[in-house]
Design a protein around this nucleic acid. Structure first.
Length: 479
RNA sequence: CGGAGAGUAGCGCAGCCUGGCUAGCGCGCUUGGUUUGGGACCAAGAGGUCGCCGGUUCAAAUCCGGCCUCUCCGACCA
């Protein structure tokens, strides 16, 4: 009997850690807060990268690469930026056995170094817009770490763009938020709330920060990507300027936007169950696994031949794996691949070979309920259809879960109750003090001010102070 | 960084209080055989700087000090 995964109801955190380690997604590294992404986890990351990258290209962006080290002085050019990041910087003071003249920062994000280069590259309105993305890792010295959600070093992509006008920059910021939303919904099967961050939750140096927020299996919120309109703050700090048509010098308007491997944590926590991972078909490293079953030696060859033939028929259209290991029984393999989140299992036994059929099992429906007999003719199309169905089902399940766990409290007492075990959508006056008090008294933070406000005529009263409020915000406990 | 817990074979743990000579157990691993429609069984094996450094002692997994890492709760945080 293999070691069991801690049930989610017993200890959600432990479940999360168990699943990651046992499914061989990632492992701890010897350095505090650092993590090894194992092949299975990296394959998932590669699929995430592809899903995002093709969307970035489709919206006109190009990839580039900027260096890991940033001169300390660069970071200090934007006051709010340095203040925001100072406590979590890794600083290199020595190189080649010598003390460095100027310490180097290991990038916590690349606005500074990219801003420096943009100021060199951009001279004219004809050079705009500049639309660049980079895939890299960054380092932020975290006090308290957690696999994928908050690690010292993490993989991500950061887009950095420069524009001639505020309107263009704002449109870019919102466009990329939509790209993240689309990716989350279609690829990761994650329903997200699109919204604006309050001032206290804003990116250091940004004018406006937009976010997508998702709900995890324990009803806590996870910021899953952000898109920032940086205004002219960085353009002024780094002198990113261009000559407009009237031959007048103007500062650019810049944006930045990022999604990190934290999204993998979101996928694990939003879809997983007590058996382990449940991966959305579009991102799953293995979309379907074939498990051959044979009792008598005489059945072995025909079953394996059928399994190999099926595998071949899937190649090129579905990410398929044939588990023909001799050392494990079929039942053991069922459990193993369920734990690792493979969406579809294809069982082939002697009876199936005789009847030209297979048994399809779906990961999102455990047990007999999710099993059915399917003819081997046209199996590829049947599996493809099943994968699509699972993808949709996962999204709908997650959406229903979030909606079932989002409340609209009428007063602060109801709010306190709501926020202890769900999201709460409530009027908020915009005052940072109310936010801070709410956090202090309930541990819930202002996740975002949703963009899809039903612009109801008059507004309402702030859930905390009772003063006039124009917008509703989502509050919840967050990672 | 504060409070609490943990670190002994790949994994999970016992042993520590009350120091003692070859450090155990379950799972996994290796070999051979029987097995395979929801985590098979038998037999024989391999595998350990007891997290690291130092101290006490004739003798340390065990007692003392320091450090590292992980987990949980706080503070802090894109």
């Amino acid at each position: 009997m293999a070691e069991a995964i801690t049930p989610r109801s017993q200890d959600y955190s432990q479940w999360y850690t168990d699943v990651i380690l046992r499914a061989e997604v990632a492992d701890y590294a010897p350095v505090r807060g650092c993590m090894v992404l194992r092949p299975y986890g990296f394959a998932l990351w590669e699929n995430i990268q592809q899903g995002l990258d093709k969307r970035f290209k489709a919206t006109g962006h190009q990839n580039a690469y900027f260096p890991l080290f940033i001169p300390q002085s660069f970071l200090q050019k934007e006051a709010e930026h340095i203040e925001g990041f100072a406590p979590e910087l890794a600083v290199v003071t020595h190189g080649g056995g010598e003390k460095l003249e100027e310490p180097l920062i290991v990038r916590p994000t690349s606005e500074a170094i990219i801003g420096y280069h943009y100021s060199k590259w951009i001279k004219s309105y004809r050079d705009l817009p500049v639309l660049i993305n980079q895939w890299c890792s960054v380092v932020r010295w975290e006090m308290r770490t957690r696999m994928f959600l908050r690690t010292t070093e993490f993989l991500w992509q950061e887009g950095h763009t420069a524009h001639a006008t505020f309107e263009e920059a704002e449109a870019e910021t919102r466009q990329m938020l939509d790209v993240y939303d689309d990716f989350a919904a279609k690829e990761a099967a994650l329903p997200v709330l699109k919204g604006r961050k309050s001032d206290s939750e804003r990116f250091p140096g940004a004018m406006t920060t937009y976010t997508i927020e998702s709900m995890m299996g324990d009803k806590r919120a996870l910021q899953s990507a952000t898109s920032h309109n940086l205004g002219q703050n960085f353009a002024k700090a780094f002198e990113i300027q261009y000559l407009d048509r009237q031959n007048e010098l103007q500062h650019c308007w810049t944006t930045s936007w990022g999604m990190s491997w934290r999204i993998q944590g979101a996928i694990l926590m939003a879809h997983g169950d007590d058996q382990g991972l449940v991966l959305p078909p579009r991102l799953a490293p293995i979309q379907a696994v074939i498990v051959p079953i044979y009792k008598e030696e005489v059945d072995r060859t025909p079953v394996l031949e059928a399994a190999r033939r099926l595998k071949k028929s899937f190649e090129g259209s579905i990410r398929i794996h044939l588990d023909d290991r001799e050392e494990h029984t079929a039942g053991w393999k069922f459990n193993e691949w369920e734990m690792r989140g493979v969406p579809v299992r294809i069982e082939v036994g002697p009876k199936d070979v005789a009847k030209n059929q297979v048994v399809l099992g779906r990961r999102d429906m455990p047990g007999k309920e999710g099993k059915k007999f399917v003819s081997q003719d046209g199996l590829t199309a049947a599996v493809q259809a099943l994968l699509d169905e699972i993808q949709t089902n996962l999204y709908n399940k997650a959406l229903k879960f979030r909606e079932d766990n989002t409340r609209e409290p009428k007063n602060y007492d109801e709010f306190k109750e709501a926020v202890a075990e769900s999201f709460a959508r409530a009027w908020w006056c915009g005052n940072a003090e109310c936010e801070a008090k709410i956090k202090e008294e309930t541990k819930a933070t202002n996740r975002c001010i949703p963009l899809d406000q039903e612009t109801s005529k008059s507004g309402g009263m702030c859930i905390y102070c009772g003063k006039a409020a124009k917008e509703k915000a989502i509050f919840g406990r967050a990672y």
